[in-house]
């Protein structure tokens, strides 16, 4: 009996703490976003992070997308040839890449790159009193550290995903024409005809949401880290894990919202 009660109590505590964390994260996000519409604006900070995310993540995201497109074409060929459905490869590649693989894979790569970096930087600033120092130097740390990162990631991710979309399709095209013997024009017109605006738009919306989530989790975990180098390490791990899981979960939610009818 007591064991059951203990278990229920444990469950209740876990639920309450999960809810309170969720509330705190939401509040944190709200405060961060509110600083985006209240002057003074931190253009310099925004630009620094935008370049860091959009430009310096480009190689990683580009390579991921290119190889994913190539593998996708190759794998679908092996599978589809059993049903004599090879002609569908072009459309499979272009739809999977723009709707799903572009945003999700770019999101996961950027979560590893930027989410970790944000958490580590803010975490170090927290444990070395730099965040407190900002407050004493007439600067709101939420405005200076968090808001620009949120905006930069939200705007940079769609750009990255646009590049990922193009390179993913290019990867499929390369394998299709060079290795699988498709005619170049047919492959391209197949891809182009099946593609609808909504496919690309949904992918870009996902990208923006994922970007926001990556910056938010990185900032939240870093901002609230404590306990020296070890704490910063934990914050970094937590940021990457949390944003990766959220990316996959929200991917489902957004897909459901766009395409379930």
């Amino acid at each position: 009996m007591t064991q059951t009660l203990n278990f229920v109590a444990l469950l209740g505590r876990a639920l309450i703490s999960a809810c309170s964390t969720l509330g705190n994260v939401a509040l944190f996000a709200l405060v961060g976003v509110s600083h985006l519409v209240r002057p003074p604006f931190q253009f310099r900070q925004f630009w620094r992070h935008f370049i860091e995310i959009a430009y310096f993540s480009l190689p990683v995201v580009a390579l991921t997308a290119l190889f994913t497109g190539m593998v996708l074409a190759l794998q679908s060929f092996t599978g589809f040839s059993r049903f004599n459905a090879e002609s569908a490869i072009a459309s499979v590649v272009v739809l999977s890449v723009t709707r799903e693989l572009g945003p999700v894979l770019a999101g996961l790569m950027v979560a590893g790159r930027i989410g970790a970096a944000v958490a580590a930087e803010l975490g170090t600033m927290r444990v070395t009193d730099q965040i407190d120092a900002l407050t004493t130097l007439s600067t709101d740390p939420m405005k200076y550290l968090v808001a620009p990162r949120l905006l930069a990631a939200t705007l940079a991710m769609p750009l990255l995903v646009l590049v990922a979309d193009i390179l993913g399709v290019l990867g499929g095209y390369l394998i299709g024409t060079v290795k699988l013997g498709f005619v170049s024009e047919t492959y391209l017109s197949n891809s182009w005809n099946v593609l609808q605006t909504m496919d690309v738009v949904s992918g870009l919306v996902k990208a923006a949401v994922f970007g926001f989530i990556i910056a938010l989790m990185g900032a939240w975990c870093g901002y609230n880290s404590k306990g020296g180098a070890q704490g910063v390490g934990q914050a970094t791990t937590r940021a990457v894990v949390a944003s990766s899981i959220l990316i996959l979960a929200l991917d489902y939610v957004i897909t459901e919202a766009f395409f379930s009818r």
Binding site: E121, M125, T128, D129, Q130, D132, A133, L134, T135, T136, S138
Partner: peptide, 20 residues
Amino acid sequence: REAILDRTGMLFQNGALFDS
């Protein structure tokens, strides 16, 4: 509070310089 902090200076024990 912000107005008071505007007129306040603080030297942290470990410096707390912004390394970026």
